[in-house]
Design a protein around this nucleic acid. Sequence first.
DNA 1: ATCTTTAGTTGGGACGGTAAACGAACTAAG
DNA 2: CTTAGTTCGTTTACCGTCCCAACTAAAGAT
Lengths: 416, 416
Amino acid sequence: MGRGSSVLTRENGPQPADFADVRATNLAVVLRHLRTHAPCSRADIAATTGLNKATVSSLVTDLIDRRLVREVGMTENRIGRPAVMLVLDGSPYAAVGLEINTDYLTAVALDLAGERLLSWRRAFTGTPGQPGQAIASLAALARRTVSKLERERRRVLGLTVAVPGLVDADGIVELAAGLGWQRVDVRKSLLAALGEPGYPLLVENDANLAVLAEQRLGDQSGTGDLVYVTGGASIGAGIISDFRLVRGARGFAGEFGHLPLDPAGPVCGCGRRGCLETYAGLGAVIRRALPDVGIETALSPSEFGPHVDEIQRLAKAGDPQVLEALSETGRHLGHGLAILANLVNPACVALGGYFTALAPWLIPSATEELASRSAAADSGGTRIVASALDSSAAAAGGATRVLDAIDSGSLPTPHR
Amino acid sequence: MGRGSSVLTRENGPQPADFADVRATNLAVVLRHLRTHAPCSRADIAATTGLNKATVSSLVTDLIDRRLVREVGMTENRIGRPAVMLVLDGSPYAAVGLEINTDYLTAVALDLAGERLLSWRRAFTGTPGQPGQAIASLAALARRTVSKLERERRRVLGLTVAVPGLVDADGIVELAAGLGWQRVDVRKSLLAALGEPGYPLLVENDANLAVLAEQRLGDQSGTGDLVYVTGGASIGAGIISDFRLVRGARGFAGEFGHLPLDPAGPVCGCGRRGCLETYAGLGAVIRRALPDVGIETALSPSEFGPHVDEIQRLAKAGDPQVLEALSETGRHLGHGLAILANLVNPACVALGGYFTALAPWLIPSATEELASRSAAADSGGTRIVASALDSSAAAAGGATRVLDAIDSGSLPTPHR
DNA sequence: ATCTTTAGTTGGGACGGTAAACGAACTAAG
DNA sequence: CTTAGTTCGTTTACCGTCCCAACTAAAGAT
C-alpha cells in the first residue's frame, strides 16, 4: 500500500535479478538486522525478518566465513536450548572517512559495527587556488590513517572524502568557495597520490555525508526524511528523502547558504543580497552577539571556535544582548528552514556545525518561525533539533557511507 | 560505482527477497522494456536486458497469459528466422486518473501501453467547506468512467485522485486552500461512495502526479531528476529525485507557491508577504498584463482561461506591455525556481498549468534569473522548459501512477 | 527419568535462471 | 532444387537458493 511494492524493483532502467541478487539481499538483511539488534540469535533473526530458520543459518554461516559476523557466548537461565548469540565482527575491517574544510582536516575510522576506531583532527590552512597542496596534506592523512589500520591487521573497506562544496557524481569538485577551489578532480588526484589503492574511494559533499551520519549514528537513526544543516562560515544542507540521499542531477542539491531571504538585505560574499548566510552564518552571529569583535576585516576561520565558546558562555550566563542575538539568528535560520521544509517536508532538521553548540538558544525562535511559515499545520511534522554529532560528522558520514555499501549487499570477498 | 550496488536492495528495514521477487522483478524488466522499445522480439529483449533467452521466453509466456503482452506479426525480408514481434496489450486493462480542482473535474484513462482511452473534463464549482458535494461529483465521474471502461470489457487496474493541496500518506487531504478543504478523508469517502471497489484507490497531490506524467508521457521521459510546476491561481511543485517522487515525511513536500521572495512584498492570501504566488500566480500575471481587467475583486477561477488566451494573443502580436509583464513574471518565477534548483538540483523544470501557454515569453527571463542565482555554474544543469502536457497532466499522472505499480512488479492475476 | 520448550541442522521439494543444443523458418547462392 | 548460413525461440539438463517439515540438541520443569 505504502511505498514500494516489490522489494527488488527499481524505477529506472532494466535491471534483471537472479539468485545471486536474492542471496546478496538476504545477506544484507541479516547484516542490517544485526547492526541494529545485536547481539541476537539465528532464531531471533528468522523470527523478526521473516526469513526461514534454515535460510538464516545458511546466511550466517556465509557471513561468519567472510568474518563479518562472530558468535559470542550463549544465553543462559532460560527454558529450552540456549541460543548462540551473534554480533557484527568489528576486528577485521575498517571504513574510513576524511573531511577537508577551511581550517582543519579530519579523519574518522569505524569498524563494521560502527565503533569508532580513530578520530583525528589537525589544523590546516590551504592556499586558495592551490588545491594541490591541500590534496597532498589530505593524502598524507589518508596514508597515516590507512597504515595505522593495516598495522592493526584490518582491511580497509573504502574511503570517502567530504568536501564543503559542489561535488559531482564523478568526484570532481565543481566549486568550493571556502577552499577557493574550482573544477578540481579530487578523486583522481587522491587516487594517484595514494597509488591507486584497492579499496573504493569516493568524494562527496560534506553536508550529504553528515546527514548520512546523523541518520545512522545520531539520534535520528531510522528516520527516512531528514535534513542536516552544516553551520560554519558557510551553510549547507544534506537532504535524505525516503531513506535516500537527494543529490540532484549533477550532485549539487542542498545549496542552502545562499538562499535569498530578502532582496533588500546586506550584500553577501557571493555578490547577491540577503542570502541566508549573511543572516545566520557564523560571521553574522558573531557580529550580532559580540559586536566588540572587529567587523572591519573578515574573520579567519580558525578564530571561530573561541568566539562560539564565548557566545555560549555568555548565553548560559543570561547575557541579554547575546540572547537576543541568538534569538534573531534563530528567526532567520527558521525562515530559511521553512523554505526547505515546505519543499521537502522532513520529519526532522538536525543543526550541525556551530549551530549545535548554540542550539538551545536558536531552536525556540527558529521553531516558532518555521511554524509561522509552514504551509501545513504543525509545521508539517518537522522538528528542529541539535545534531548529536560533533564536528567530525562529515568524516563519520564518509565512513558510514562505506558501511552502507556493505549493508546494501556488496560484501567483501570471503577473506583470503 | 555510481548509485545503488545491488539491484534488489532497499536502504530501509529488513525486506527479505525470495524467488517470487526475482520473478516479479524480471517480469517488470520485460514489461518496462516493452513499454519503451515496443514492438520488439524475445531475442531483442534478451540481448538488451541481459536476461537469458530461455528466461525471456518464460517471462513472455507468463505476460501473455496475463494478457499484458500480445504477439503481433513477424519481421520479414531479413536473413534468418523471422522474429515474432511483441507489444503491450492495450485492450484488457485500463488505469484511471481523476483530478479535482477549483473550477473543473478531469478524468483520464490510459491503457497498459499508455494510450489515452478517454479524457473528460467538466466544469465544477465546489462550495468551500462542503467537501461532501465535491466528493459526490467526483464519485459520479469515477463511476461513469469506470462503467464506460467496463462496457469495453476492460479491467480497471487502479484509480488515483489528484487534489491541489496537502495530501498525507493515507489519502487524507490535510489542507486544500483552493477548495476550502481541511482534514478531509477523500480516500475513505470515495471508497465508500464507490462501494469499496476491488481496484486500488489512491489520493495524491496534483503536482506530484503531474511530475510523474511528465516523466512518463512528456518530453522528459527518462530523466531521473525533474520538477513540474503547476501554474494556476496557486502554484505547486512535484519533485522527482533519482527516479523517485519526493514526498516528505507526511507527503507535504513541494509546497512552492508560498515561497517567500520578499518580506516587503505584497500581502498574500495566506496572510504573509511576498509569496511567489503574489508575483507569479495567475492573478498577478493578469493584473500585470491586462490592467484593464478589474482588480478590485478576486478573479473567479473560471475566468482565467479566456484571460490567458488573451494574454497569449497579445504576446504573439508583440504588445510591449504584455511582453514586459510576462518578462517580469518570468523573472519572479526564475527567482523561485532558483531556490528550488539550488536545493534539489533537477535536470529540468517543466512549467505546467497556465505557464505552459505563456512559456515562450516566460522562459527567457526565468532562465536568466535562474542562472544568475544558481550556486553552480551553468545553473547546475537545470533547464526550464514548457510542459508537453495539457491541463489533464495531473489526471494523466494519476493513471500513470497505476501503471507504475504494474511496471514495478505488482501484476494483475492471470485473468480468469 | 521424562516431558516441555526452544535452537539450530538436515534433507527433500519447488522454483527460477543459465547454458548449450536443437528444431524452425527464413535468405543467399550454386 | 539443393545446400549453406543465419537468426529465432524452445527444449533439456543443471545449479543455486529458499522453504518446509522433520530431526537432533540442550536446556529447565515436573
